[in-house]
Amino acid sequence: MFALAVLAAAVRAGTPVLLATLGELFAERSGILNLGVEGMMLVGALAGFVATVQTGNPWLGALAAGAAGGGLSLIHAVLCITLRANQVASGLALTIFGTGLSAALGRKFVGVPASGFPPEPVPGLARIPVLGAVLFQHDPLVYLSYLLVPAAWFALYRTRWGLEVRAVGEHPEAADAAGTSVAGVRYVCVAIGGVLAGLGGAFLSTAYTGMWIENMTAGRGWIAVALVIFATWDPLRAAAGAYLFGGVNALQLNLQAAGARLPVYLLLMTPYVFTILVLVFATRETARKRLGAPAALSVPYTRSG
């Protein structure tokens, strides 16, 4: 029973990171590095929470969170795609801004309870032994994230648009010559990143905890950026990475709850230490297998060259 509980908790803890990772994966595949994930998640968490509290409908909350994350990502898009600003600097600015903005606007909502997404077991599937308890007794956003993984894979590898995204990220000159709008594809991909980061934030505030706390993402946006590297820019591996992270997080939370004789603050460090280790492992793997980043990642595109 303990194992089942931990696995189910791993899925829930992995979901916000999975959403953000998938989004950042699209942005990076198109050649735009966005280090603003943490800021977009926080603003999404707040927007989703506020909309849920005021309308009583968590779906409107999710919509608001996606819109907020997407809107914020457009600042990054304008600066980096249209104005060709430094992508690392712009992403950091976005995180600093989003952290401050969400804290400033959210101060009135600290301690307010929200009735967010309730768990809704999937009819039939929820009764499968083991798998049902682990995968199919969650809330709708978790199921949405299940669907997004194969959808992202299909979009990237099996559609014409996905081909354009990959071409723009690897060789924008060639994509441009072939008639693809480099800026257009990049805008869409950065916006997808923002929407999904916002949704990930909303999952945290409306489904995972049911409250708003300043800085509640606690680095999950950065972990998502790291997991994109671990995933070698592949949606299926992104899911593996996110649930691995979720597993570590769930395990340390369960150890805390079980009253393990380990100091709480040391247990809380484990997700960050784990992410650094994963990054080391992934860097070695990608170097060995020659699975590099998209060739044009973080290089502004200028037509005249």
Partner: peptide, 10 residues
């Protein structure tokens, strides 16, 4: 909150 400073800095 002091985070307003972050917002303005951003």
């Amino acid at each position: 909150p002091i985070a307003v400073v972050n917002m303005l800095q951003g």
